[in-house]
Amino acid sequence: MKQYFKDLDKAFDNKIRLGIMSVLMVNEYVSFNELKQWMSLTDGNLASHLKYLEKVDYISINKSFLGRKPNTKYRATKLGKNAFKKHVNALEKILKGGKHNDVT
């Protein structure tokens, strides 16, 4: 069980970043405002976590304009998706292991 702890990703030890990544796993792309609505966050808070994920190359940003309004779209990169899968796998394995330990 212990060996799985090292598979937990530091980028996802924050609930907001984990939430952003969960959303991007099941949506091709999402906008800033959609993310804000789902996670009920302030602009600044959300932006800083998006920046973090961009820095480690887990998400990519596509800036464009819809008329005059800026329309920023976020996608998960392949690297990000794999990291997320690994993280979730580790979570599940640890939890299973934990249950086993409870019994014995």
Partner: peptide, 19 residues
């Protein structure tokens, strides 16, 4: 352990809510 369970629940909720 409880924390991790919460994490999994959070993931599921965010996926459902966004789709």
């Amino acid at each position: 352990k409880r924390n991790l369970q919460e994490e999994l629940t959070h993931i599921r909720i965010m996926m459902e809510r966004s789709t």
